[in-house]
Amino acid sequence: MSGIIIDKLNVWFDTPEARVNAVKNVNLRVEKGQSVGLVGESGSGKSTILRALTGLIPTWSGSMEVADEKLGRKRSHRFYKKVQMVFQDPYASLHPRHSVDQVLSETLRLHGFSDIDQRISKLLSDVGLGPAFRFRYPHQLSGGQRQRVAIARALAPEPEILLLDEPTSALDVSVQAEILNLLVDLRLEHGLTYLMVSHDLAVIGHMCEYIAVMQLGEIVEIMPVKEMRELRPTHPYSRHLLESSLGYKSEDNSVQ
């Protein structure tokens, strides 16, 4: 039983001028129950891998397998029940005219659940929002609360795998910690598999067991987070990334 197997994945975008190769020959394995982080600078293709996995980008080659299901051009309904995604910007990922209740009940209905009222209250309490938030509209919520709603939506179909696309980078620091702790708790509680994109090594260090470093569309190194903490990356780019993040990192994170 495996989580995600990506083999020789290439993703490209066709623009009128030229073809842009966003992801080049990427191999990645995420075992069930594992949490793997993808780091790299902007434009290195981290988010593109997630979007190709979920079928939002149709132009890819290679092979992808998720929860023993080989992925083709189109994603099955079964796939969406198993794999869900949390987007980067909670201000853009909620429909401005739909209340929290509408968002969650539509999701639940699409996945064929019937006890919708009960499930909504359960989901809201799972992500730390009280029943008072149920009928609010996004503009009545703060950024952190919005991201909690987005997480509740992703949890609604009871997925096995969560794809996290920089879920905290649009939030301020104190809220970031809350959301990250929530994600850690949810993973323990539901036995989820995480594939998480971030450009923040401290976030990956907090959340993940393995870390894959990307540069210019390629994965240059995959290592356990422990090795990164012990400052033992081998590839020059990962070392560069680590050193530049040490400049402002607190001490207890680097010495353990």
Partner: peptide, 10 residues
């Protein structure tokens, strides 16, 4: 993103 999100619900 909110259209992408609802696409991911099938």
């Amino acid at each position: 993103d909110y259209i992408s999100a609802v696409k991911l619900q099938g």
